[in-house]
Design a protein around this nucleic acid. Structure first.
Lengths: 190, 190
DNA sequence: GTCTATAGGGCGATAGAC
DNA sequence: GTCTATCGCCCTATAGAC
């Protein structure tokens, strides 16, 4: 028998998700989470910088996916590149809709977690802008296109967890809405 | 002589701005701020919900300006409405560029403050979306247009504090960049 | 793993304005 | 009398230091 149960990190994440749902984020102490995971409080802080971070473990991977997709995409206008990258990220998240929904419910109920989520998305935007610049997109256009990409992601994510469509389809629908916003007249005469 | 000096709130804001600049946000305690303002620590927390909030006193007014501008603007496509509202907000901030720059420097140096700034902008976006819906814009288009408005505001703000242009001009320039992103070919044959 | 400083909330007391 | 701003002290949990 091992000296410690394996995967303390995974148990801490599950315990936090469950407790935040059961009794709310603020009513849950780090000691509670550690106890349910069968480790000490100190161990929690070895794995996660703070009490919020335990819910954001996948955000680094999401960012890597987006950045890689931007770098790899064929020659195209900046907006098409970020659109395709966001769809790619959506594909990677598709099979975790129940988790995403539970997590989103906790975050929506907790301003402090909402803040952290926004920081992660902003960091993703900054990384996306850098990846666009690496493709030769001028700085301001890159910053703007990256922000639009994140905006599309946010709106599409909201759709995804509240309706039946799958995530990539929500991204495509939101990208269509974005185009429509820029040509208010349904069909400019050809 | 009054029992207390008036405007404890204003003194707390000034003291916080000065101390955060002098020695950094994390190296400043609430006790330090309270002491410089001549009140107790407890009084600080009666005026501001937390140590960050003291830097975001104006954000409610900014939001009111944007929402009012959206409600009052003439019949026009959603993107034009938010664009005009952001320009209106920029006009209102124009005369506080030095303050904005000092504040931005503190925020840029402090992830925790960056988080709070993003939350305020997200809240502004939500309010702008609601104001667009009140004008009859469909929900998804409203959410997307509001996000675009905030994106333009962020990019333009960055321009404003790093270059010589005035804020409304930065907004207009960024709105032009936004249009350009959607029509990559310089001039589609008429 | 233990120790400590700080954030931030709860509660009652005080003193001025009205 | 009421209302409101401030104070002071006690408390817990976070998060960093040792």
């Amino acid at each position: 028998m091992a000296r410690w149960e394996p995967d303390a990190r995974g148990r801490l994440m599950l315990a936090a998700l469950a407790l935040y749902t059961e009794r709310g984020y603020e009513q849950t102490t780090v000691a509670d989470i550690a106890q349910r995971a069968g480790v000490t409080e100190r161990t929690f802080f070895r794995h996660f910088a703070d009490k919020r971070e335990v819910l954001f473990d996948g955000s680094g991977m999401l960012q890597d996916t987006v950045v890689a997709a931007i770098a790899a995409y064929k020659e195209a206008p900046p907006l098409d590149v970020v659109g395709a990258a966001m769809e790619r990220a959506a594909v990677a998240m598709q099979d975790r809709r129940d988790f995403a929904r539970q997590r989103a419910a906790i975050i929506a109920a907790t301003p402090s977690l909402h803040e952290r989520e926004l920081l992660k998305l902003a960091t993703l935007g900054t990384a996306a802008a850098a990846a666009l610049r690496d493709r030769g997109v001028p700085p301001v256009a890159a910053a703007l296109a990256a922000e639009l990409g994140v905006a599309v992601f946010k709106v599409a994510f909201e759709q995804w967890i509240t309706c039946q469509l799958d995530f990539p389809a929500c991204i495509r629908a939101t990208l269509d809405e974005l185009s429509a916003l820029h040509s208010p007249s349904p069909a400019p005469r050809p």
